[in-house]
Computed example of a mutant assay.
Amino acid sequence: MNRPHLNTATATPRTFEVDSTLPGVSFRGAVVSEFTKLLALRTSWWLSIITIGLGGIIAGAVAVSYQYFMAENPYFTGEAMQLATQGQTGSYFAMILLGALGVIAITTEYSTGAIRSSLTAVPQRVLLLSAKALALAGWTAVVTAVLILISHVLTSLIAQPLAPADILDAEIAGMYVATWTTVLLTALLGFGLGVLLRSSAGGIVVLAVIMFVLQIVLSILYGVTDGAAWVETLLRVEYMNLVDNFINPEAGALSPAPPLEPWQAGIGLLMWAAVPLALGALRFTRRDA
């Protein structure tokens, strides 16, 4: 008796579909659920602990070096704002570490298949993606605030003229808020890359290229082309140049490109985060999970 032969090699795989008209979990419930996932993810804790610890170590090292320089140069008059800015150097490492967390926060669900369970609980994909982004932003906001506070305390206790109470100074507080904002936007940039690429390695590599490699390449091109206008334009909108101009305009002035106003740099950083988020959301809503 002949049995029907199934050609499994050419069989069309079943796609995962969820009725987006179903109510599912509320937005508040989705945010709580996504935040709980971050709490349960060991990578979240490791990256956050490393971020805070490394930031504290760097702040202490900067303060000790600053104090030593002051002792060796008694006629040098330091400024509290300058010391406070240097004490936050660890925030640059926080950007790449928490940016990587932003990538992992979404790509781990694809690698484990948990995204299907998430979509079953929250069928409306835009709502699910918004909940994930909000939970990540909340986590990043807390970790970055702790980093900034610890860095300020260590720097102010070790070196002068910065004092612990200077955290209430309008100029210094404004710089801290700008630093906090850049780390938060970088985490969302990483999240957008993760949604768009659906690959942890790919998202983290692209994030590293945006933050480090691109600046080096453009600086080389600027020298090779004798300061061509198009390279200068790219340098002005390059991610880390925008960060420097947004946090510390004096640091931004060191770039070969003309400096930007902080509000202009802030808009540029928003665009850097918004583009991959928008493209990722478009792919997330239109392509199968």
Rank of each mutant, 00 (worst) to 15 (best):
A159R: 03
T140A: 02
T144A: 04
Q124H: 14
V146Y: 04
A133S: 14
I148A: 11
T144M: 01
A159W: 07
I148E: 09
L134F: 07
A165T: 12
A145G: 15
L149F: 15
V146W: 02
L129Q: 12
A145N: 10
L154C: 02
H152V: 11
L147M: 08
A163Q: 15
L149M: 14
V146K: 02
V126A: 15
V126I: 15
L127C: 05
L154F: 05
P161F: 05
A131F: 05
L127V: 14
L134C: 04
A137S: 11
L157P: 04
D166Q: 13
V142R: 01
Q160I: 05
A145Y: 09
W139K: 01
A137T: 06
P123Q: 11
P164S: 09
A145D: 06
I150L: 15
L162N: 05
L127G: 08
T144C: 00
I158W: 11
Q160K: 12
Q160W: 09
H152K: 09
I158N: 08
S151P: 11
I148Y: 09
A135N: 01
I158R: 06
W139T: 01
P164A: 10
A133V: 09
G138A: 03
S156R: 04
L154E: 00
V143A: 01
A141W: 05
L168N: 13
H152R: 12
T140I: 03
I167Q: 13
A135G: 11
A133M: 11
S151A: 15
A135H: 02
L129A: 14
R125M: 11
V146A: 07
P164N: 10
I158G: 08
L162K: 08
L162W: 12
L128V: 04
I167C: 10
V143G: 01
L154K: 00
K132T: 06
P161Q: 07
S151H: 06
L149Q: 06
S151V: 08
A163P: 00
I148P: 06
I167G: 15
S151D: 13
R125G: 07
Q124D: 15
I148S: 09
L162A: 06
A165R: 12
S156M: 06
A159V: 07
A141K: 00
A131I: 04
L134G: 03
V153M: 14
W139G: 00
A159L: 09
T140E: 00
A133F: 08
A137Y: 04
S151M: 10
V143K: 01
P123S: 13
G138D: 02
A141Y: 03
S156W: 04
L162M: 10
D169R: 13
L149V: 15
